[in-house]
């Protein structure tokens, strides 16, 4: 299992037979969402090679935390596809059922980033957003590649 841990917030991949599971863990729901976005980006390319230069604003809305989480990941997929960018830093704010975020990244450079695979979309399979008894937030689902 791959992981990355600045302070208490971290991300992981978890195995799925054909696709890939992404998991974000943090002190808040926002942090868990940010970390899961990093996990999804790491499915595509090595995060350390992506410069957090240019910001892109992302907004989405959904009736519950889990739908909001999948919406968030899918909004990133959309921004990556239409801007031809990869992101390596995310900042998430959630108020009620509305998420507003900023992602920082740079234009995709196929030579330098060596993208392994495109994420087609985040799925509702293996989907969980919850606060653990220890107070940590976990957000996870399977992404289709």
């Amino acid at each position: 299992m791959d992981s990355h841990s600045p302070a208490s917030a971290r991300w992981e991949h978890f195995p799925h037979e054909a696709d890939m599971g992404v998991r974000g863990i943090g002190a808040t729901r926002e942090q868990a969402f940010e970390q899961a976005a990093l996990a999804m980006t790491a499915v595509i390319a090595d995060l350390s090679g992506i410069q957090a230069q240019t910001p892109v604003d992302i907004e989405c809305e959904a009736p519950d935390d889990e739908l909001l989480f999948v919406d968030w990941l899918n909004a990133i997929v959309y921004e990556m596809a239409t801007h031809h960018m990869l992101f390596s830093r995310y900042e998430v704010h959630i108020k009620d059922r509305r998420l507003s975020a900023r992602a920082w990244g740079e234009p995709l450079d196929r030579e330098r980033h060596q993208p392994a695979v495109e994420v087609k979309g985040a799925t509702y399979t293996g989907l969980r957003v919850r606060e653990e008894p220890n107070g940590q937030w976990v957000a996870e689902c399977i992404v289709d590649v």
Binding site: A62, P63, L67, V70, D71, N74, V77, Y78, A81, K120, G121, A122, T123, Y124
Partner: peptide, 16 residues
Amino acid sequence: GLGHQIGTEFLKRMAI
């Protein structure tokens, strides 16, 4: 991308 986006959008609408 077109098919991926249609799948994404209708999945959410149908789930709701």
